[in-house]
Structures are given as structure tokens and as C-alpha cells.
């Protein structure tokens, strides 16, 4: 920071280089460092409201909890519904209420991480706030980012929100059981994803039956 000293009553300029989005990125790096030090793998789960983020996490927990120590950070605007749903699986959950905010940020995650005994944790799932836009701008320090899109969101979701897919490591196409009812095809959603990034991995799931969940576990080496 540069500043020009001035006498009483004088006007002067303070020059700054304060990048507020950068600050989030730096905090995210700190989070990642802390997780790495404790050998915790963190997975950020993003996606629209109701796309199936909590259902996906529950499915993963059911299959992983015998062999891994799991934790969940449940981001939500104001309610604890999702946190309660996850607690049914008897894993540690920290609820983060963002109030009126449309995304989790690295600072909220840093605070939530303090609630866990990280040394005894293998995998941390972070459910982001339901939104396909803002979370993309705020890395949290997770190791992998999943975007969940469900067929019930209609055929244009991916094309309308390309940005979040640039930040993703895996796209989960959920609610494939409803393809016919919705007249939306898995193939066309997949094609839209690959138009944005040809190498991006997609996995189809039905969270009511558990179809596709094992493939996710394998792909992310959980």
C-alpha cells in the first residue's frame, strides 16, 4: 500500500491493490493446505436447488461409512433440513447457514473446519448452496468439485450456465429415471457438457435406487 502523507485538512489518495475475490482464493488455498496436512479429501457439491445434492451425499455416505471416516458441511440459506437428513446416517455434520448469501465462501468453510476433528476424518463432503452461478466464483479449497444437474431442470440448464462447468471435475446427471416424463435425454445433456469441455467426465445417477453411485466412488477414488 502506498500513501502520501498530508497535513491537517489536506486531501490525499490511498492507493490499494485489494482484490476481494483474490482474498477468497487465498483463503481457499489455506483451507486446502489445512485439509492436506490432515489427509482429508474434500469434495464440493454444487448444483441447482433440488437437483439432488443432499440425496447424492446420503448415497455416498451409505456406501462409504463402513470403511471411511466421513464429515459433511451442509450449506443452506436458513434451514437445517438437509443437515438433519444427513445426521440420520450418523456422520458428523456442520451446518452453515449463509443467511441471504447465494454461495458458500472460503471464510465460512474455514470456520466450519474448526468444528471438525480433522485428524480423524478421511473425506469431507461440502454441500454448496443450490445455485449454478455464484459458487463457481468462490473456490472453497476442496480437492474436487462436482456439479449435479438433474433432468427435471429441463434441457437448457447446461448451456445456460457454462461457467460452473469450467470449474468442475465431475458432472453428475441425476434423476435419470425421469427422462421420459421430462422428455429430456441424458445424451443431449451430456453433449452440452462436452461442448463446454470435451474431457469433462459425466456419470448418470438415480439417487432413489443408488444407480451410478459406485461409479462416482471409483472415479473419485473415495
Amino acid at each position: 500500500m502506498k500513501s502520501i502523507k498530508a497535513k491537517e485538512g489536506e486531501i490525499f489518495d490511498i492507493e490499494l491493490e485489494e482484490d476481494l475475490l483474490k482474498r477468497n482464493e487465498e483463503l481457499a488455498e489455506k483451507n486446502k493446505h489445512l485439509l492436506d496436512k490432515n489427509k482429508v479429501k474434500a469434495i464440493d457439491i454444487m448444483g441447482s436447488v433440488g437437483s439432488g445434492k443432499t440425496s447424492l451425499i446420503k448415497n455416498l455416505i451409505v456406501r462409504l461409512k463402513k470403511k471411511r471416516c466421513l464429515g459433511v458441511i451442509a450449506g443452506d440459506l436458513t434451514t437445517t433440513i438437509d443437515a438433519e437428513r444427513i445426521k440420520e446416517e450418523k456422520v458428523e455434520v456442520v451446518q452453515v447457514n449463509t443467511g441471504k448469501e447465494c454461495h458458500l465462501d472460503a471464510n465460512l468453510i474455514a470456520r466450519a473446519l474448526k468444528e471438525f476433528d480433522l485428524r480423524n476424518l478421511d473425506i469431507l463432503f461440502i454441500e454448496n448452496v443450490g445455485n449454478l452461478i455464484c459458487p463457481a466464483e468462490f473456490p472453497l479449497g476442496s480437492h474436487k468439485r462436482i456439479v449435479v444437474v438433474s433432468l427435471t431442470e429441463g434441457p437448457w440448464m447446461v448451456t445456460k450456465h457454462p461457467y460452473i462447468f469450467r470449474e468442475a471435475d465431475l458432472v453428475v446427471i441425476n434423476k435419470i429415471d425421469l427422462a421420459r416424463a421430462m422428455k429430456v435425454s441424458v445424451e443431449s445433456i451430456t453433449k452440452d457438457v462436452h461442448r463446454i469441455r470435451p474431457e469433462l467426465k459425466t456419470i448418470c445417477t438415480n439417487c432413489l435406487t443408488g444407480e451410478g453411485i459406485e461409479e462416482i466412488i471409483k472415479f473419485l477414488s473415495l
Partner: peptide
């Protein structure tokens, strides 16, 4: 980026 570049103040 989202930068605060300069603040002009009086004392």
C-alpha cells in the same frame, strides 16, 4: 478481479 484501487480522503 474485483479491486479497490484508490480512495481519496480528507483529514
Amino acid at each position: 478481479e474485483c479491486l479497490v484501487r484508490k480512495i481519496r480522503i480528507s483529514r
